[in-house]
Nucleic acid binder design. Structure first.
Lengths: 231, 231
DNA sequence: GGTCAAACGGACGATGTCGTCCGGTTCGCA
DNA sequence: TGCGAACCGGACGACATCGTCCGTTTGACC
């Protein structure tokens, strides 16, 4: 098919041992990040995976690449939730479930919140297309729920980011306190409902939804984009 | 009075140059922490203050001591806000202002949020008395606002911590986005109002309010408690 | 089974931060 | 003015992490 050198049959172009090690590294990374935070030494991840540091760096040149790959599955769950939310015939329920799913993921998958915020700001050029679509979907979701009279009219799409980021940080500060997380989500959702709109709100943030890690594109879990560089 | 060697007249027992340098260090620390985060190198703070590292370490043996001292003023503002909230004849307004003041402080004083959460978990034994009083005051504040029918009945004191911590994290993630911060506060306050109570809430967190850095005790800004140790 | 590229992993130099030590300086008091 | 204690600050060794280099091993294909 694609005119590669084609000595290797496996789909991802990795040798069997390499692929096996890659998997081990991702498992180890999730465990280590959950336990010691996202800034844990790379060597710790390598040791836990039973590989050398060089193997780790070869597969994931930067910590960022490792983090993204380690939590690609969770990111994708977020993205799928967005699709499902749009498919829900009840606009409010779709909206509500999106928020709840994203927050539940942040709550249950330790280490993921850090990845979530880490992926947040520096995603301006990265896989722009998928993010643009996610942004559009979010706005559609919001408008539909507003048109149905369930979501308050002065809700601004950027409020989604406000909600997700603040919740994110709460679970980071209190990783074991699920009750606190659930409470915050419940409070936020209640105040997002149309009938909760009593006073006026201050102006919305200029935050772009495009930067929210809700975009489903396969590239995240794939090979490290060797162009990715942290400064 | 206290039978000191008494060669030094100044109240804090520091020589004039030492006191001057201490002030410089605090100013520099606030600036550096705001700019580079709370984990900025101690040497950076020292350089900015125009003193040697040794001077910095002599005055503040641990980073923690420096952080506490640097933001003691902000902590005290928080604590004063609590007192004022209790003095307000309108229970709801008192409650509202407390939340708003604390959040405004977090929003405007860059670096303070990090100090706020840093002070949060490891304050179990530290100046326990003041914290106990703060806890009692908070509960009084909540009960009064509930009795007045302004604060929803299912509001739990620990929700204050939920609100402050999540807001704290939001401004940490988006230090420049004041609109996002104000929005979150407005949403939270609206959902705390009695008339916003529509559905049932999940059970409250077991979080102790005692650990919230809202306690005003002079010890924070004073000499570093040499017993304080990080592990 | 043989060949070779790909993958492996430990060692290593570079870098940055920490916290202390000590010789020189300055302040406060007589 | 003189003295001594307190203070100052740069230098320094210890330590952790980073990311690369390179000799060795392993898997895929013939």
């Amino acid at each position: 098919m694609v005119g590669e050198s084609s000595r290797i049959a496996s789909q991802d172009g990795l040798r069997a041992d390499a692929r096996r090690n890659r998997g081990r590294i991702l498992v180890a990374a999730r465990a280590v990040f959950a336990e010691h935070g996202i800034d844990a030494p790379m060597a710790t991840v390598a040791r836990r995976a039973g590989v050398g540091v060089a193997t780790l760096y070869r597969r994931f040149p930067t910590r960022d690449a490792l983090v993204r790959a380690a939590f690609a599955q969770q990111m994708e769950t977020c993205a799928r939730a967005l699709t499902e939310a749009l498919d829900d015939p009840d606009p409010w329920r779709g909206f509500q479930r999106l928020i709840e799913t994203a927050c539940e993921l942040q709550r249950e998958e330790r280490g993921f919140p850090a990845a979530f915020v880490a992926a947040f700001p520096d995603s301006t050029v990265d896989h722009a297309r998928a993010r643009q679509r996610a942004e559009r979907d979010l706005m559609t979701l919001v408008r539909r729920a507003q048109a149905a009279g369930a979501l308050r009219a002065d809700f601004h799409p950027s409020d989604i980011a406000v909600a997700l980021l603040s919740h994110c940080a709460l679970v980071t500060a209190l990783p074991h306190d699920r009750a606190a997380s659930r409470r915050l989500v419940a409070y936020l959702l209640q105040s997002f409902r149309a009938e909760a709109a009593h006073g006026a709100l201050p102006p919305p943030s200029a935050l772009s939804l495009r930067s929210l890690p809700l975009a489903a594109d396969g590239s995240q879990g794939a090979q490290p984009s060797n162009t990715a560089q942290r400064t």
